[in-house]
């Protein structure tokens, strides 16, 4: 029988496109960078200015990337001029509302935290010193080591990292999204991207201020998180496979069908996971400090996480059983 019901275009299940994947990546990276910065700062001896380059890199990345992400998010709305309605209407059963509330707290905190780390530049040497002077008193009054602020920031960084996963996993219309492991996977990969970006950023822009010991600490951290991601991905797909029905079908399709299967095996696994592990057991064996390889390692981790977000978003919306 011919199809006589009219165009099927509106039934495409591909609703969210690359800006959302990039937002998910940037939000995770922001959260990861904030955590990275705090973890390095919490290492004994790192709690006073001049701040380690890695602390500064993470502190700067966190607010910048979340803002960039939110920009993308707003302009990806079909009614971007109405975005402010998100800020005054809340639905507490919606992960998006919860995310908005989380970002309400997380974003300003990340700015204050960065301001503390860049006090001299902001208020004395930088081009905006004159403009920002009135705020100096506030930042000064917070002090260099505000435990409440740092703990809250860390907590909300974790929340933001996880929320990006829940945003997708709350939808049972898509089997690949609707899995309890997705938020953890996103948190882990967010942390890994935060670490990588901090190293990359620190070594590129604050190289002289980076303590080799701190860099090694982060590399070790990354080396633990990356295999963790592999484990989570493994558990996610195997778990889906054993759930039966649509889930089984989607798990198989997503790993074997079309361009997204290539993205997964080459981009996510090959570039994002295998390459860093390979670098770790070869070039950076026994914690060798080879800046070139460390930078390469960071780049492949970041590229891998971008692929992961793209893969999950697109494969999730493509394979629905």
């Amino acid at each position: 029988m011919n199809h006589i019901a009219g165009s099927l275009e509106q039934y495409s299940t591909l609703i969210w496109h690359w800006p959302i994947a990039v937002y998910l990546f940037l939000a995770g990276l922001s959260a990861g960078a904030a955590m990275t910065s705090l973890m390095v700062k919490w290492i004994e001896g790192n709690n006073k200015a001049p701040w380690d380059g890695l602390i500064k890199a993470g502190a700067l990345l966190a607010p910048l990337t979340i803002c960039l992400g939110l920009f993308l998010l707003i302009f990806d709305l079909t009614r971007p001029l109405h975005f402010w309605k998100l800020l005054i209407h809340y639905n507490f059963s919606s992960v998006m509302t919860l995310g908005v509330l989380g970002l309400f707290i997380y974003t300003p905190l990340s700015f204050i935290y960065a301001a503390i780390k860049f006090k001299p530049w902001l208020f004395e040497t930088g081009p905006f010193a004159g403009l920002l002077k009135p705020f100096k008193g506030i930042i000064d009054s917070i002090g260099d080591n505000p435990a409440w602020l740092e703990r809250t920031l860390f907590l909300f960084a974790v929340i933001i990292g996880i929320y990006t996963g829940f945003l997708l996993s709350a939808m049972y219309s898509y089997p690949l999204f609707n899995t309890p492991l997705l938020p953890i996977l996103f948190l882990a990969s967010g942390l890994s991207s935060g670490v990588a970006a901090s190293i990359l950023f620190g070594l590129l822009f604050f190289k002289s201020e980076v303590n080799q010991k701190n860099a090694k600490y982060l590399l070790e951290l990354d080396l633990r998180v990356v295999p963790m991601e592999l484990l989570l991905l493994f558990a996610l797909f195997v778990g889906m496979y054993f759930q039966g029905g649509d889930k089984t079908l989607v798990a198989i399709q997503a790993l074997t069908t079309g361009v997204w299967a290539y993205v997964f095996w080459v981009g996510v696994i090959g570039i994002g996971i295998a390459t860093p592990l390979l670098i770790a057991v070869t070039a950076l064996k026994h914690h060798a400090y080879r800046v070139g390889y460390i930078l390469l390692n960071s780049v492949v981790v970041l590229v891998g996480v971008v692929f992961l977000r793209l893969y999950i978003l697109y494969a999730g919306q493509t394979f629905i059983g």
Binding site: Q10, T13, W16, T78, R79, P80, M96, M171
Partner: peptide, 24 residues
């Protein structure tokens, strides 16, 4: 009240929603 995040469109397991080309 709609901001056009399309979360509802994505979340509907029945693909019942379309985006109005006029109101978006």
């Amino acid at each position: 009240l709609c901001v056009g995040c399309l979360y509802c469109v994505a979340a509907c397991p029945y693909q019942a929603r379309y985006v109005d080309p006029v109101t978006k």
